[in-house]
Amino acid sequence: MLAQLQELLDQGRASAAALTTAAQLDEWYSTYLGKKGALTTVLRGIGSLPAEDRPQAGKDANTVKVALEELYRARSEAIEREALQAELASGALDVFLPGRPASLGMMHLSSQTLREITAVFSRMGFGVLRSPEVEDDNTNFQLLNIPPHHPARDMWSTFYTDQPGLLLRPHTSPGQIYAMKKFAPEPFRVILPGKCYRYEQVTSRSEMMFHQVEAIAVGENITMGDLKGVLTYFARAMFGSERKVRLRPSYFPFTEPSAEVDIECYLCEGKGCPMCKHSGWLEILGSGMIHPQVLRNGGYDPERYSGFALGMGPERIAILRHNITDIRYFFGNDLRFLEQFA
């Protein structure tokens, strides 16, 4: 019995050493340790031994079984390790091939810029409102201190509709009236983003449709110094913290005093170049203290309340920041343009 077992173990040990694949290993297992394997066959023979020999035979058989199982385990680990080594050695990818293309979307550059502007003003406590694009003459002009035939009307080339008195707003400033009427007599700060339209030939420098953002703050203690503070914060947030900002007197019928805001030309850093028409400055927005009559039209007592308003074009700002040479790209919607700002 013992000899039989010993022979089995020797055979098993010898054959296990030659195993190289998992399949061979499985076969080896059934040959020696399977239900119909050699060890089972030997064990069956124990029953026919004399009773006094059986315990020793059982013990011996178990020793061999453990030894075979250990052989199996060791060989199995070795084969796995070899397989892993082989896979690592041979499984290299051509890592220099291009990756699988992902289909990514992106926001339009105008939307991105609008969102950035909104975020800057939001940090200064400004909420967001929207007002109509098709507007009436009264809100667009008259309540903003621009009576019919006033010379200032020349400042806005306006599209008029077949419905008398209705026009496409050429600026977001009528939003000031909506905002004031909504909040009067409480102090408030909001921005009003949206589309505007101008009767202007579409060229590389002018568009018939564009966005504007109006910002307006009304309160009992708001000064032009505050306007300067907000503008400086805004310009530095959008154009860099070292950028110089200047205000110069301008004219809007709905603000008094009025100011045009220039930033130092980023191309020539103020030295003068074709981009800034050799002035060293780039105009980025118009602003001013809200005219007393406009405050009154919005429901505020101008003796007690004051406020400022400013308006800017996100496309203009994007053009300046990204060196875009032609405004027509914005609404041309060529993906080769839009994807550059993804």
Partner: peptide
């Protein structure tokens, strides 16, 4: 303001009652 020079005006942060936030 014009004669004094816009550049010479103070630059300040709004020092006023914080307006109620508008949920939009």
């Amino acid at each position: 303001a014009r004669l004094y020079g816009y550049d010479n005006l103070p630059t300040t942060l709004i020092d006023d009652q914080m307006p109620s936030q508008i949920p939009s």
